[in-house]
Amino acid sequence: MKTDLFDFELPRDVIAQRPENPRDMAKLLSVGNNLTDHRMIDLPDLIQAGDLLVFNDTKVIPARLKGKRGEAGVEVTLHKQEPPSAEGGARWWTFAKPAKKLKPDDIIRFANGFTAKVENKLDGGEVLLNFDLTPEKLYPHLEEHGKMPLPPYIQREVGSDKQDAEDYQTRFAKHRGAVAAPTASLHYTDRLMSALDAKGIEHITLTLHVGAGTFLPVKVDDLRDHKMHSEIGFLDQETADRINQVRKNGGRIIAVGTTALRLLESAAAQDGTLHPFDGETDIFITPGYKFKIVDLLLTNFHLPRSTLFMLVSAFAGLDRMRNAYKHAIDNGYRFYSYGDCSLLQREDHL
């Protein structure tokens, strides 16, 4: 399958630079056999009692650090944690700038005197760092010296706006480890959650630590040549049992965001039974994929040629999503992390 199939014209001015205020007044496009325009606050009227919303409770960490290799400046963005070293040091895969001059055993010094050694280096600026701090001791240093890893499409200097530290974190954030927010969850307010509860629509959480690889464009011409970055996810037995029970009772499973969907589909058996999950997933969902467990998907609007637009095209149909995105652009919807939302019906359920 060719990457060009997922290309479309996207005006730069439709990429949201700030979230809607209040959050639940973001636009919501319902995509099924027809397209209908709503607001997020209307969501309880668009789904049913007995349905279950599944949120990602990962917490974004201030993952961008500036340091020095000798006298030369280096900036790194942590994107995937590895098991600690034999000495207990935190180990993270990072994207480094500039990466060309870094080599194994180089030492990068950061503020407050903590350091990291270059343990490995891959093509594309990816570097494995071994810090001289344990994972738990590294986090306070990230909070003090790191910057929130905003997407490159937010047109302001990283860390220059303290409001982003609040705006780019969901109300469900609990388990730290993500370097990108599960942005479909940014729309939820006390008012909206109360309305969902009153309708008999429950929710549950799982954890997928979103990596910076989510921002990387697909550069290959043929999707078979694209390598997905893996991400770490957790889903326990209690969560699996509850989701399985909802399905048994006839309720629908609604993934809030592509990250929740990717973990659910990674943890589901072919018959749709959900099992606990603790590990890495690099699932790459493109048209032709047979969905096992997710019935509806709430997700923001994504960029051309991105793995996320490929995923939503697999879920709702490429032609349908092309029409939906044209409608969104023509009708003032805002795209990407701080943008508006869509509610997608699964193509094989229409």
Rank of each mutant, 00 (worst) to 15 (best):
126 E>F: 01
71 E>M: 00
146 G>H: 01
134 T>N: 01
113 G>D: 14
169 Q>H: 12
163 Q>W: 13
166 E>P: 00
171 R>Y: 11
143 E>M: 10
118 V>G: 08
164 D>F: 02
136 E>G: 01
146 G>L: 06
68 K>H: 12
130 N>H: 14
94 T>K: 06
147 K>Q: 14
130 N>T: 11
61 I>D: 06
137 K>E: 15
110 F>G: 00
105 D>R: 07
99 A>F: 08
64 R>N: 03
68 K>E: 00
80 K>P: 10
95 F>C: 07
80 K>H: 14
142 L>D: 00
118 V>S: 08
152 P>T: 07
117 K>W: 11
119 E>M: 09
160 S>G: 10
140 P>F: 15
118 V>P: 05
134 T>C: 00
103 K>H: 12
93 W>M: 07
106 D>G: 02
123 D>S: 13
82 E>W: 04
80 K>G: 05
154 I>Y: 09
77 T>K: 08
121 K>E: 03
150 L>Q: 07
107 I>V: 15
177 G>T: 08
116 A>Y: 07
129 L>A: 08
114 F>L: 06
126 E>Y: 05
171 R>K: 13
124 G>Q: 03
93 W>H: 11
129 L>M: 15
149 P>Y: 13
172 F>G: 04
167 D>Y: 14
90 A>G: 02
130 N>I: 04
121 K>P: 04
59 K>D: 07
165 A>L: 11
162 K>A: 15
168 Y>N: 02
125 G>I: 01
115 T>N: 11
65 L>S: 08
67 G>A: 00
173 A>M: 02
73 G>S: 12
143 E>G: 00
83 P>V: 02
105 D>I: 03
146 G>F: 05
131 F>S: 08
137 K>D: 15
163 Q>L: 14
157 E>V: 10
60 V>S: 09
68 K>N: 11
171 R>Q: 10
134 T>W: 04
102 L>W: 05
